[in-house]
Write a protein that binds this DNA or RNA. Structure first.
Length: 294
DNA sequence: CAAGGCTCCTGATAGC
DNA sequence: TGCTATCAGGAGCCTT
């Protein structure tokens, strides 16, 4: 399940293999993959043709490929199971291939041995997709203006995040997953950062002290940086990075998926609790629930 | 307006 | 064997 580190790995792959190539054509094999492109699949493909791709950017779990000659960008979200693969044009289609983008071979692509390859969006569960949007003056696709900066962004404002937590009448894991407060954190890294911080997921944010917020942010950054160093992660075999190699980091997980296994800090069996139609993993001893439970 | 819940989707797996 | 139930969960959208 791609979160910020995995998406960043994909972004770097695209920088290597796709930037500065010109789109020759695109093919949408499943309409749901472009459902965020409201004008439809035909409009999506027609408007891509002939444009040259710029340097890929990312905010949180969104990444986008700017078109160099127009203030627009191809926005991508991988959802649960999305992959962006660079494959030889001659490679057989993947079972869940949703979108194919072909490129014109140019001297630029020949220089990087990218010639003869195409970009494929493969997505089993179809929660992800591509779409084309206008970009704001700072280069951000307009439809993700509500997405907050992510914790690895140098312009992320720790103090503003802390004040936002204080104003909320919510609990900490909900806040971590709220992409309008802090982006890029999903269920896995939320549980990991909370475990490192010894915080229970249901702890109200309103009472957070500044040191507590800053420590949590530090752990969020640490766990993401560690995952990035290993090449992103997804013990989920569905996840493959842009070069088609599977990444991951599963051996470094301290909380997620460890129900019944001993806490790596105190040895107490880890627990799993149903939470927001998913799961939260935590140590019942290190991460004590708040006194007043919702 | 904020907070919380519902829903989209497919495949692996467990249970009967 | 073959069916059904459950789980995985990001984020837009809906309800309260």
């Amino acid at each position: 399940m791609p979160e910020l580190p995995e998406v960043e790995v994909v972004r770097r792959g695209l920088e290597r293999w796709v930037a500065h190539r010109t789109v020759a054509g695109a093919e949408v094999l499943h309409p749901r993959a472009v459902r965020r492109h409201l004008a439809g699949a035909d409009d999506f493909t027609h408007r891509l043709e002939g444009h040259r791709i710029g340097a890929p950017s990312r905010r949180g779990k969104y990444l986008w490929l700017p078109l160099e000659d127009t203030p627009q960008a191809i926005l991508a979200h991988l959802g649960m199971s999305g992959q962006l693969l660079i494959r030889p044009r001659t490679a057989p289609d993947e079972k869940h291939l949703r979108i194919r983008v072909r490129f014109a071979d140019t001297p630029a692509s020949a220089d990087t041995d990218a010639a003869g390859t195409e970009l494929r969006f493969v997505d089993q569960r179809t929660f992800g997709g591509l779409s084309l949007h206008d970009t704001t003056p700072d280069g951000l696709p307009d439809v993700i203006a509500h997405i907050a900066r992510d914790p690895l962004d140098p312009l992320f404002d720790d103090e503003a995040f802390h004040q936002a937590l204080r104003r909320k009448r919510s609990t900490i894991k909900r806040a971590l997953l709220d992409q309008s407060l802090i982006s890029g954190v999903g269920n896995i890294y939320a549980d990991e950062a909370l475990w490192r911080s010894r915080l229970h997921y249901d702890r109200p944010t309103a009472g957070f002290t500044r040191p507590r917020t800053l420590e949590l942010l530090g752990h969020v950054r640490d766990v993401m940086t560690a995952a990035l160093a290993v090449g992103g992660t997804s013990f989920d075999s569905l996840y493959v990075n842009v070069n088609g190699e599977s990444g991951y980091f599963d051996r470094s997980l301290d909380a997620y998926g460890r129900e019944g296994l001993p806490c790596r800090r105190c040895g107490t069996p880890m627990r799993r609790r149903p939470w927001m139609n998913r799961s939260s993993y935590f140590c019942p001893r290190c991460q004590r629930p708040p006194r007043v439970s919702s």
